[in-house]
């Protein structure tokens, strides 16, 4: 690791101004950034920790019925506190990494990083969540722009994520055998105005919506409604742990299972 400065602002405004400096980078739970720095693949001059900002912490329900999660809220807290409001989301959070990762890693860090195998992006996209930053609100449909790429500007901070609560939802994660990230993860959420299906782990373009499945499920929210629907292997990730064809196949299997398990 290279030398760096650490600042721990307590307000979003202070954090934003600290991030305005050249070489400054936000630090959430550090579960991605710190290993990268240890390997000397990242060398920020200043880390601006977001975990001391109380207004970015915690889970609550808004008056208009949205589940609001502070951008620096660790996965373990979401797993615990979202369970009554949005069990599918809490379930997702409870299966990220191991207890140490869940106690440190944050929703904002996960969404900012947008790892193509991460779990949260599928929940945000699958729920049509709104990503709130220190400067604006971004609809999930506009936010994810390919592997490790998002709509965030340099220094922009995810302060909160707002999830509309579905009638039913479920997340099915098929674990990559080594990392236990999602080899394929499918988030299915049924809303009054239709069903959303978001897929992570599978595509070279990062998290995406499987629109054909959404259309079929919006007509009939049953696993059988997906019969005959397949995704092309083209454009899927192919690696040591799963070929393109295997991933395309798994998307179908996991989607069916998510529908069957949705609650």
């Amino acid at each position: 690791m290279y030398n760096f400065e650490l600042v721990r602002p307590t307000t979003i405004a202070d954090a934003a101004s600290a991030l305005g400096h050249e070489g400054a980078q936000a630090l959430g739970g550090g579960q991605t950034l710190l290993p990268t720095m240890k390997q000397r693949l990242a060398s920020p001059e200043t880390l601006v920790s977001l975990t001391a900002i109380t207004e970015m912490q915690g889970v609550c329900m808004s008056d208009d019925g949205h589940l609001c999660i502070g951008g620096a809220t660790p996965h373990a807290l979401v797993a615990r506190e979202a369970v009554a409001h949005y069990p599918a989301l809490a379930g997702l959070a409870s299966h990220i990494g191991d207890p140490a990762v869940r106690n440190r890693g944050t929703i904002g860090g996960s969404l900012a990083n947008n790892d193509p195998s991460a779990c949260y992006p599928s929940a945000a996209l699958g729920s049509g969540a709104v990503i709130i930053t220190n400067t604006r609100k971004i609809a999930a449909d506009d936010y994810f722009q390919g592997m490790f790429t998002t709509a965030l500007n340099e220094g922009e901070i995810i302060t909160e994520v707002r999830f509309p609560i579905p009638e039913k939802a479920n997340y099915q994660k098929f674990e990559q055998p080594a990392s236990r990230f999602a080899l394929v993860g499918v988030f299915v959420a049924k809303y009054a105005d239709g069903v959303r299906v978001a897929v992570t782990g599978a595509s070279e373009e990062g998290v995406f919506r499987w629109t054909e499945a959404e259309a079929a499920l919006s007509k009939s929210f049953t696993a059988d409604a997906l019969n005959g629907l397949t995704l092309p292997a083209d454009g899927m990730i192919g690696d040591l742990h799963g070929s393109k064809a295997y991933r395309a196949h798994l998307v179908g299997v996991m989607t069916k299972r998510a529908v069957a398990a949705a609650a």
């Binding site: 098929f174 055998p177 080899l183 742990h241 799963g242 070929s243 295997y246 196949h249």
Partner: peptide
């Protein structure tokens, strides 16, 4: 015998 290999 990874899932990928068995499925393949």
């Amino acid at each position: 015998l990874s899932p990928n290999r068995v499925w393949a």
